[in-house]
């Protein structure tokens, strides 16, 4: 069969063969560990988990035995996480949260009940990419009401902080607030939108120096133009001139009027009198991430959205792999 073995790759050691140490984990052990890591007091953590203190201590010791290192330094008044404890905390917490979410989702799936969900979305992200995910969310939660806000990275960050948006699907956010929990989804690719009469139309992809005198046209806080500007600096050009429009739909008309070179998402249709070019040796790309605020109580709909986005096959959005990779080995 043609597809069989298509994902084999020739590597020196197979994953399953280099089996080293593995640890089994119990849900209750992790629950106690997470409680103690927050409360930092054995007696109080045991109370919070509704177990006796010896039972909690025993479970923590078992987990430490399994993981092969002390998670806590036990001091009478100053119980605290060890370096090792801090290292394993994020993955154990995420696995635990996933198991909690799995439970809640199984309970609330297809059930009625008002479920508002506000999503902040970068202006350049093609809604067609998210439509199937939103449709699935609508099936899962028949009473869901979604609000979608489009904005710049700065506006999106503010909305997240204020709680006006529960989930963001966005370009990298400007200030890396430590409570932003981000997950990479895919990379969005862009091109230059220009008229077929443009002086560079016959010379695409354009060489960077040819663009030094051009004016760019995009939505506010465009990371793609920032990246072009960074490259221009190596040529001694300090800044690139840019126009900003709030609505991406306004870009084609302005390009047509020779107002500038548009920054245009690849895959988004454009009229026949316009063309999409690129820049030689410069990938116009921007990562798209899902972002929430750590520590807030998230709705089951929001968690399901993140789960669907992370699980989704974005491989068609990825840079093509170098040809020497994923070779079917001939026996």
């Amino acid at each position: 069969m043609l597809l069989k073995g298509s994902f084999d790759s020739v590597k020196s050691t197979p994953l399953w063969a280099c089996a080293g140490m593995v640890f089994s984990m119990e849900l209750h052990q992790i629950r106690y560990f997470l409680a103690l890591s927050k409360i930092l007091n054995f007696t109080a953590a045991a109370e919070a988990c509704h177990v006796s203190q010896p039972a909690l201590s025993r479970a923590i010791s078992q987990l430490e035995g399994e993981l092969g290192g002390a998670l806590f330094r036990r001091e009478r008044k100053l119980t605290h996480l060890t370096e090792f404890g801090r290292t394993v905390l994020p993955s154990l917490r995420q696995c635990f949260e996933a198991s909690q979410h799995a439970k809640v989702l199984a309970r609330s799936f297809h059930h009625e009940g008002h479920a508002p969900l506000s999503i902040a979305l970068s202006r350049m992200i093609d809604i067609d990419l998210l439509a199937p995910v939103l449709a699935e969310l609508g099936t899962a939660f028949p009473s869901i009401e979604v609000k979608i806000f489009r904005g710049s990275a700065r506006e999106i960050a503010l909305r997240l902080k204020n709680g006006d948006a529960e989930v963001a699907i966005a370009d990298p956010l400007p200030d890396e607030w430590e409570r932003f929990e981000t997950r990479a989804l895919f990379e969005q690719a862009f091109g230059l939108l220009l008229t077929r009469r443009h002086r560079l139309a016959g010379r695409m992809p354009a060489a960077l120096p040819d663009l030094a005198s051009e004016r760019f046209l995009s939505v506010p806080e465009c990371g793609v133009i920032d990246a072009i500007e960074m490259e221009m600096r190596t040529l001694g050009v300090q800044t690139v001139a840019r126009h900003e429009v709030d609505a991406i739909e306004d870009i084609p008309s302005l390009v047509r009027a020779n107002f500038g070179l548009g920054i245009w998402p690849l895959g988004r249709p454009c009229d026949a009198d316009l063309m999409i070019g690129g820049i030689r040796d410069h990938a116009m790309r921007s990562p798209v991430r899902a972002c929430t605020v750590f520590g807030r109580q998230h709705s089951v709909a929001a968690r399901t959205l993140i789960c669907l986005l992370r699980s989704r096959d974005w491989s068609h959005r990825r840079l093509p792999a170098p040809p020497h990779r994923s070779v079917e080995h001939v026996s």
Partner: peptide, 29 residues
């Protein structure tokens, strides 16, 4: 079963240690 959430609920999740991780990464997996 993203993040092994359901597997953990069933007591089926196991964690691999640093040594094995680096061995796998070294092997390119």
């Amino acid at each position: 079963d993203l993040d092994n959430g359901y597997a953990l609920a069933l007591g089926l999740a196991i964690q691999l240690d640093d040594e094995k991780r680096s061995a796998m990464l070294h092997a390119g997996w």
